[in-house]
Simulated scan of single mutants.
Amino acid sequence: MRRLEPPPDLRGRRARDPFWVAVTAYFNGVQRVRGMLRPAVPEVRPVDRTLTLVVQEVRREAEDVVSLRLGALGGGALPHWQPGCHLDLRLPSGRRRQYSLCGDPADRRAYRIAVRRLPDGGGGSAEVHRALTEGTVISAEGPRNAFPFLARERHLFIAGGIGITPILPMVRAAHDLGADWRLVYTGRTRGSLPFLDELRALPPERIEVRTDDRDGVPDAAGLLRGAPPDAAVYCCGPAPMIDAVRAAFVPGAGTLHYERFAPAPVADGRPFQVELRRSGLTLDVPADRSALDVIRDVLPDVAYSCRQGFCGTCRVVLLAGEADQRAPSDPDGDSLLVCVSRARAGRLTLDL
Results as ranks from 00 to 15, higher is better:
G74T: 06
R296E: 14
R144L: 14
T136G: 01
Q31N: 08
L199H: 12
V245A: 14
P203H: 08
R270E: 01
P271G: 02
G74P: 04
R13F: 05
R59A: 14
F249W: 15
D301Q: 15
L199A: 12
E63W: 05
G75A: 04
P203S: 08
D351L: 02
S341H: 02
T136M: 01
P92G: 05
A131H: 06
R144E: 03
I138N: 06
A179E: 03
A201Y: 00
A264E: 11
R60M: 07
L292R: 01
G333D: 12
A179R: 10
L196C: 11
V233S: 04
A15L: 15
L202C: 10
T282I: 10
P119H: 04
R59W: 07
G35K: 14
M170N: 09
V316W: 01
P143F: 01
E5H: 11
R96Y: 02
L223Q: 11
F272H: 11
L196H: 07
R45F: 01
A25V: 07
L299V: 15
R3T: 05
P46H: 03
V209Q: 12
V317Y: 00
A146V: 09
A110K: 07
M241Y: 04
A40H: 14
R246Y: 00
R60P: 13
A179F: 07
A239S: 04
R38Y: 10
T211H: 11
A291G: 03
R214G: 08
R109K: 10
A174L: 10
L283A: 08
D334H: 07
V294A: 02
A173F: 06
Y258C: 15
L156D: 09
P271K: 00
A262M: 09
R14M: 06
E43Q: 03
T133Q: 15
L337A: 07
D334I: 00
L224P: 13
L352I: 15
L283P: 10
H257F: 03
R270Y: 00
G321T: 05
N145I: 01
G191Q: 06
R342D: 02
P228I: 06
A287G: 03
A140D: 12
R2G: 00
A264G: 08
E153V: 13
L352A: 10
R225P: 01
Q56D: 15
R3W: 04
P42S: 04
I242M: 14
R130I: 02
A248T: 11
V65W: 02
G269S: 02
I164Q: 12
V41C: 08
D301E: 15
R188K: 08
E127R: 01
P105R: 04
A146G: 05
V274W: 04
A253P: 03
C102E: 12
I138E: 07
E153H: 11
V21N: 04
D324Y: 00
P8H: 03
L177G: 14
L202W: 08
R277E: 09
Q56N: 10
R3M: 07
A253N: 12
P328Y: 00
P204D: 09
V47F: 05
V316G: 01
G76L: 05
A320E: 11
H155Q: 13
A151Y: 01
L150G: 03
S93N: 09
R16A: 13
E259R: 09
D120G: 00
Y258T: 11
P240V: 06
M1I: 03
Y258M: 11
G124I: 00
L319K: 01
L199Q: 13
V65D: 07
D219Y: 10
R69A: 15
R60H: 08
L292N: 02
P331M: 04
